[in-house]
């Protein structure tokens, strides 16, 4: 089994399982967390297909921005005092996860060989897809479309902020 196929199987299996879990979980916040895993796995699949730029955009928008947006709206919807007690109980769990993340980071930073192996897995994927040429292609061929989408985003933000409910 090659490295490419190994990562494909890993990403696809995790994606399918976490998408089902996100639908089955009763609490909305767990739905959001499983959905984050799904989006991360889709980003990995984009990387395996050679679409590096799309993978970066997917990661930035779906794994970072949208969870913040949905999380804030969940906080606005759920304003119960019981939730705070639950959050206090899960304080040690959060510290445990943080320590685990730090340990994994230390492992990758100390063992440079491991980091090089992981980096090599993603570099070989598709040598033809060039990030610079893709960005240039967007700017040269679709500049008006890009501007229109930027304007659409601005209009939406202004419209949502000006509306008084």
């Amino acid at each position: 089994m090659s490295i490419n196929s190994f990562f494909f199987i890993l990403f696809s299996v995790l994606m399918c399982i976490s998408s089902i879990f996100s639908l089955l979980s009763k609490k909305i916040i767990y739905t959001l967390l499983w959905a984050m895993v799904v989006f991360l796995m889709v980003s990995g699949l984009f990387l395996l297909l050679g679409a590096k730029y799309n993978s970066i955009v997917q990661f930035l928008i779906y794994v970072i921005t949208i969870p913040v947006l949905v999380g804030v709206s969940i906080m606005m919807i759920k304003q119960n005092s019981e939730k705070r007690i639950i959050m206090l109980n899960s304080f040690w769990k959060i510290i445990g996860v943080a320590i685990l993340v730090i340990l994994i980071g230390e492992f990758f930073s100390l063992n440079k060989d491991v980091f090089e192996i992981v980096k090599a897995c993603f570099v070989f994927v598709n040598p033809y897809s060039d990030l610079d040429s893709f960005a240039q292609n967007i700017l040269e061929r679709y500049p008006i479309l890009l501007l229109e989408f930027g304007l659409g985003l601005i209009i939406t933000v202004i419209g949502l902020s000006n509306h008084e409910s």
């Binding site: 730029y53 799309n54 779906y62 921005t65 949905v70 606005m76 919807i77 893709f134 967007i138 939406t156």
Partner: peptide, 27 residues
């Protein structure tokens, strides 16, 4: 790069849809 470009714009549209949908959810 046509498919890749379409995906970039589709991502923007999906983010818009989610933002507006969450706004209506709050209302």
């Amino acid at each position: 790069y046509l498919g890749y470009t379409v995906v970039i714009f589709s991502t923007a549209i999906s983010a818009l849809v989610l933002a507006v949908g969450l706004y209506f959810t709050n209302i």
